[in-house]
């Protein structure tokens, strides 16, 4: 990664993340197809809803015949973390037009969020809309095409898991987390290790009582609060 913030660099910086979208996108397409969705429905869901893991939730709820309001509520809960990520990213675009802001927010993903947080450490804490649009568009198009491809392949291929592609997403987050820890100089490395340990403990503890998605949001809300407390205590 370098300090360039143009569209092309955004596209280039996002390339390592496409494996994650392809792996999970193919899996989603196959799951969607085998759950009775048409390829067109899968493609439109990826283009319009564009909600990653929440799309799996939609398919499983549609399959058991849940009502539309209930499906919407579930999707909102699964994606509530976007409120925190968008608020974090938006601070870097206050000077840009409202349309640029809406454009960035519309296609924001976990991956482009994590990527942008890494990028900050190379650009003296600046981001630019064109860079973000580049990274977001790579993600959007790859996701839509991968899910449609998965739908077309449908029952033809076996389990996409056999090729290890589903792990691409986890591997990417491991990479982005580690790179974030070694490049973010606003927080000491040791302190960041402490934060990772706290987040792991919270996530495990909360997963005992709550579903993964609720645990994820609760971990983020409580973890950030504990981070503030520990930071305050360290600076005494």
């Amino acid at each position: 990664m370098n300090d360039k913030l143009n569209f092309e660099t955004g596209v280039k910086d996002a390339l390592p993340t496409v494996f994650g979208y392809i792996g999970i996108g193919l899996a989603f397409g196959i799951v969607g197809k085998t759950s009775g969705l048409s390829v067109l429905e899968i493609f439109l869901m990826s283009l319009i809803t564009y909600a990653g893991s929440a799309q799996f939730v939609m398919v499983s709820l549609l399959l058991v015949g849940s009502s539309i309001p209930f499906i919407m509520l579930s999707v909102f809960l699964v994606n509530a973390r976007f409120i925190l990520m968008s608020t974090t990213v938006a601070q870097y675009f206050r000077q840009d037009s409202i349309w640029q802001n809406i454009g960035i927010g519309t296609l924001l993903t976990d991956e482009s969020f994590a990527l942008s947080m890494n990028k900050l450490n190379f650009t003296n804490h600046r981001l630019a809309p064109s860079w973000f649009h580049g990274a977001n568009l790579v993600a959007y198009l790859t996701w839509a095409l991968a899910t449609a491809a998965g739908g077309i392949l449908g029952n033809l291929v076996g389990d996409p898991k056999a090729f290890g592609l589903d792990f691409a997403l986890v591997a990417m987050f491991i990479g982005l987390l580690y790179l974030q820890m070694i490049t973010d100089r606003s927080k000491a490395f040791g302190f960041q290790v402490v934060m990772v340990v706290i987040a792991c403990a919270l996530m495990y503890g909360l997963t005992i009582f709550f579903s993964d998605n609720v645990a994820l949001i609760a971990t983020t809300l409580i973890g950030c609060f504990l981070g503030m407390v520990v930071e305050q205590w360290r600076s005494r």
Partner: peptide, 20 residues
């Protein structure tokens, strides 16, 4: 909010390692 990236990335990894 400055803690969101590190906490959310850790939680996303953990989500794939442990199942409720």
């Amino acid at each position: 909010l400055s803690f969101v990236p590190i906490v959310i990335m850790t939680a996303l990894i953990m989500e794939n390692i442990f199942t409720h």
